[in-house]
Design a protein around this nucleic acid. Structure first.
Length: 920
RNA sequence: GCGGGAGUCGCCAAGCCUGGUCAACGGCGCUAGGUUGAGGGCCUAGUCCCUUAGGGGUUCGUGGGUUCAAAUCCCACCUCCCGCACCA
């Protein structure tokens, strides 16, 4: 058993030896960063993936000899923490329960959470401890938060710089809005997490005395088919001065208009019934009546709608129900409905009973979408125009001629977390970062093209995002963060103040030596872009360090940040830094599932990282998160795998404990050393692409198979194993993944340096021994074949005869091998080729076919290195193994042998690497 | 709708770019045997179907096609997942 608690001592040893502090030196540098956490909750296993991956990367590069800088900061910027503290102040039971029961926050600390900064501080510490306990090789001297005074200055510099370049613009912008909180709402601010989406209604004006009655519609083209208006008799309506006209709309509509840049002054309130049977004049000078209809919703649009019975099933059905003698006016023709009244046809089709029939909804949707794509206008002004085109044309004409206006309306009933019904608000002086600028996009593309992406599959997603991005609001009215330097009413929002902070890690190390009050833009310009020299002497040191460590060599993050943060990161670097400081690589990873399910509070399957570490140790968790899938896939974390990994590690530990060294240089020792070199080459290649699953498989499983085979072969001969070098390499390969246990074993081996700083194994070409490699392949496959035969025949062997192929066959085999290596893989061509030059070949066409198959069915690398073995002596080396395995006498001959014993004439079937076998 | 991605032998999941290494890596689970005081762990074998000689058959969402050869390339279709903004 391993004492996991005891392994934690390495945390202190690493810290005391300061081995993860990175300062400029003569070595090549490697700068790795990960998206810093937002401290509004403790970390769970899912968070662990990105950070662990980055740490593995950092540790790997460190062992490869790089001077690796891996820093960490904390992102306090944003509104969620603010909202949380508000809810705490309001004594929100649900949230308090989450804190006490799930996050295990002590009661007396929760009381402090009415102060938002206290929440951030608490969870920051929590998260930091988790990172330390996970063994992340972070240089903690560079820690900072985004509300630090110096960071604020840094962000101010960034924004003034962007503004000077013309990348910051001001404009108006519609948002979902909570009238009570006076703040924008997005999906996670709403009850039920409903995304606030809006439609643009066309408001068509109908003359009513000196006033205008406004109806809201999504189908302005149907104005030509209007027969009457509908109003809810119980609804509350108002007459109001809107801008310079008198409008009649529902009271709720008047309220909503006031958020949409309209000046609204209520003049009079009344019930809908007042207007019933009144007449209005349509834009075509037709006089139509206002009729009552209960289906009209005063909360939606203007609370008044126009009736187009020919094309709107609701309207048609209402006329039927009310037995009104009004003729529908058909204005759209389509193939399906031809000269008929479409609404009537659809009602028949759906078998609608009355106005309250729920199927009316479907009937409406069906007809609307059919006519939109297939309908053609038949009214004079728009004759022959498709509905899909006519809609916009009619709308803009109406607006131009002041017959209509527009209004944004939420598509669904959206409520803020506080319970208030949301509206659409147009923000007028909103600040944006203008990612739509062509020359900026070009720079971003250029940066992307120079960049390495892991995995490369995501490149297209970036390309698309760069094109798709446009103006992005970069400031809000509330939340923690940095104030917009030229407009202190605004706070820079979180996705905008986190795009170039990697550069700030360089400065953070010096923060307490800097006279913050005297820091100005020139200070940052000097450090980052070689501007004029500045007063502060420390700037010189920082500048030197910046020039050493920047650019970022590898940026890690979850793939969900591609459409925003990671692309902003690219954009902003190209705007603010010289080309040689542009980032070099982005690595993205998928998320983590818990036992196949998404992690969520409602599933109750969120496991806090720190308690998982306590229970299972950091090593097993690190490996279990990374072993199940490659980068982009979602990783499935399961306890079965966790414990399996844990056992694997324990076994390695036990093996290492018992390790003794014996001198020996058998065929099998040569094989082990040779295979070890192949393993090093493969694992290194995997690591270079951060194919961590592949690497871990190799180290944990394939190396176990090697070990088993080696021991089996050794013990069959009664020899002692010699495994010191094997484990020396294995522990170093494993060290980036499971640093604690590797550090322990490393020291157990008598090393007094840290494995965390040990040299990554280098393959020694001289130890690669193809004769040994292929010899063992032969032995394994013969073993396999015999087992197969025994399995099918179910006989108990007394004598086993093995016949290796004749010299003639080996000669042909070599020729075939050569042909295939030259690229000829077509069987019939190969046979033709051989027949031309070789008389022997003619006699063994069948044999040749099989050999071609044999050769084609081995991997390229094995094929290229295929050597012709003295198979008889190789197999003799494993004779004891066969005897022990099958409990039988083993007789090995070459087909050509004079004294051969071949009772069933099997020898003739022998092929190179496929000896014939006879079992008695 | 726009964009990205995925469908592989119980589950998870490699492979697909660069066709032959593919009945298809590996893990988990399951079955049997060994070890152990039992259990766990560990080890061995098996885990699509058939097979008394190392073999054969049918498989990689569906249907076509290209090729001596396709999970892999091409075409069409079906299903599923994710993102679409001012939010971390």
């Amino acid at each position: 058993m391993i004492d996991y608690k005891a392994l934690e001592k390495w945390i202190d040893r690493w810290r005391d030896a300061k081995i993860f502090y990175a300062d400029p030196n003569d070595k090549k540098k490697y700068f790795i960063t990960v998206a810093y956490p937002y401290p509004n909750s403790p970390q769970h296993i899912g968070h662990g993936r990105t950070y662990t991956l980055a740490d593995v990367h950092a540790r790997y590069m460190r062992m490869k000899g790089y001077n690796v800088l891996f820093p960490m900061g904390f992102h306090y910027t944003g509104t969620p923490i603010l909202a949380m503290s508000k809810r705490i102040a309001e004594n929100d039971i649900e949230l308090i329960k989450t804190f006490t029961d799930i996050y295990k926050v002590p009661k007396e600390i929760i009381e402090r959470f009415v102060e938002p900064i206290e929440i951030a501080k608490y969870f920051k510490e929590e998260i930091k401890q988790g990172m330390i306990e996970m063994g992340y090789s972070i240089d903690w001297r560079r820690e900072f938060t985004t509300v630090d005074k110096l960071y604020n200055k840094f962000i101010e510099w960034q924004f003034r710089k962007l503004k000077n370049k013309g990348y910051i613009v001001q404009g108006s912008h519609p948002v979902g809005w909570c009238p009570k909180d006076n703040s924008p709402v997005s999906q996670h601010d709403t009850l039920g997490d409903i995304e606030p989406e809006f439609n643009e209604y066309t408001l068509i004006k109908f003359d009513y005395n000196e006033a205008k009655i406004l109806v809201a519609t999504l189908r302005p083209e149907t104005i030509f088919g209007v027969t009457n208006l509908w109003i809810n008799p119980n609804g509350r309506y108002v007459k109001a001065r809107v801008n310079n006209e008198i409008w009649i709309v529902s009271e709720s509509c008047a309220n909503k208009l006031s958020y949409l840049n309209k000046k609204v002054e209520i003049l009079e309130k009344f019930n809908g019934s007042t207007l019933i049977n009144k007449e209005v004049r349509s834009i075509h000078n037709r006089t139509i009546k206002i009729l009552e209809a209960s289906f009209v919703d005063e909360e939606n649009g203007t609370g008044i709608v126009m009736s187009v019975p020919a094309h709107a099933p609701y309207d048609y059905q209402a006329l039927v129900d009310l037995r009104l003698d009004i003729n529908p006016i058909v204005i759209i023709r389509s193939e399906k409905y031809n000269d008929k009244i479409p609404a009537y046809e659809v009602i028949k089709e759906f078998n609608i009973k009355d106005q309250n029939d729920p199927r009316l909804e479907d009937a409406t949707a069906t007809l609307y979408s059919y006519e939109f794509y297939n309908g053609v206008m038949i009214v004079d002004e728009y004759k022959g125009i498709k509905v899909s085109d006519a809609r916009d044309a009619v709308k803009s004409t109406l607006i131009r001629d002041n017959y209509a206006d527009t209004m944004l309306e939420l598509t669904k009933d959206v409520r803020c977390r506080c319970g208030t019904k949301c509206v659409v608000k147009i923000l007028n002086d909103q600040w944006f970062i203008d990612y739509s600028k062509r020359e900026w996009k070009d720079l971003a593309h250029e940066c992307l093209n120079r960049m390495n992406l892991l995995p490369n599959d995501i490149r297209e997603e970036f390309e698309y995002t760069i094109e798709w991005l446009r103006e992005r609001a970069c400031a809000r009215r509330s939340g923690l963060g940095t104030k917009l330097p030229w407009d202190k009413e605004w706070i820079i929002e979180s996705l905008s103040d986190s795009v170039i902070y990697m550069a700030y890690y360089i400065i953070a190390k010096f923060a307490d030596k800097i006279d913050i009050d005297s820091v100005d833009d020139a200070f940052f310009d000097y450090i980052f872009n070689g501007g004029k020299n500045v007063e502060q002497a420390i700037a010189e040191d920082i500048k030197r360090e910046f020039e050493y460590f920047y650019p970022v060599d590898s940026r890690h993050s979850g793939r969900d940040l591609i459409p925003n943060h990671l692309t902003f990161f690219i954009f902003n670097h190209t705007a603010l830094f010289e080309k040689e400081r542009w980032p070099k690589e982005i690595v993205v990873n998928g998320s983590v599932l818990m036992e196949g399910k998404k992690m969520s509070k409602s599933f109750g399957n969120i496991i806090p990282l720190r308690s998982a570490i306590k229970e299972h140790g950091a090593d097993a968790i690190r490996a279990a998160i990374l072993i199940t899938s490659e980068l982009l896939q979602d990783a499935d974390f399961t306890f079965d795998i966790l414990s399996s990994v844990k056992n694997k590690l324990e076994k390695i530990y036990e093996n290492c404990k018992e390790l003794k060294e014996y001198e020996s240089n058998d065929r099998i020792d040569r094989w082990l050393r040779s295979t070890l070199q192949h393993t090093i080459i493969r694992v290194t290649a995997s690591m270079d692409k951060l194919r961590v699953r592949e690497a871990l498989h190799e180290i944990l499983y394939s190396m176990d198979d090697m070990l088993e085979w080696y021991i089996t072969r050794k013990s069959a001969k009664g020899d002692k194993p010699s495994l010191k070098q094997f484990f020396d390499v294995r522990i170093r390969l494993l060290a980036p993944f499971t640093p604690f246990i590797c550090e322990e074993i490393w020291h157990m081996f008598g090393n007094d340096s840290f494995v965390s700083l040990a040299e990554w194994p280098n393959a020694d070409e001289r130890l690669i021994d193809y004769d040994a490699d292929h010899g063992e392949i032969l032995i394994m496959s013969v073993l396999e074949d015999i087992k197969n035969i025994l399995k099918v025949t179910k006989i108990k062997p007394k004598d086993i005869y093995i016949y290796t192929a004749s010299n003639d066959k080996c000669a042909i085999y070599s020729k075939i091998l050569l042909l295939i290596l030259k690229g000829e893989k077509n069987i019939s061509n190969i046979i033709k080729d051989l027949m031309k030059n070789d008389n022997n070949a003619k006699k063994m066409v069948d044999m040749i076919k099989k050999m071609v198959d044999d050769i084609l069915s081995i991997s390229d690398e094995i094929r290229e290195k295929r050597v012709m073995l003295d198979e008889k002596s190789v197999l003799n080396d494993a004779k004891e193994l066969f005897e022990r395995e099958f409990n039988a006498s083993i007789h090995i001959y070459n087909e050509d042998d004079k004294e051969i014993i071949d009772p069933k004439s099997k020898a003739k079937y022998a092929r190179p690497y496929k000896p014939a076998i006879y079992i008695d």
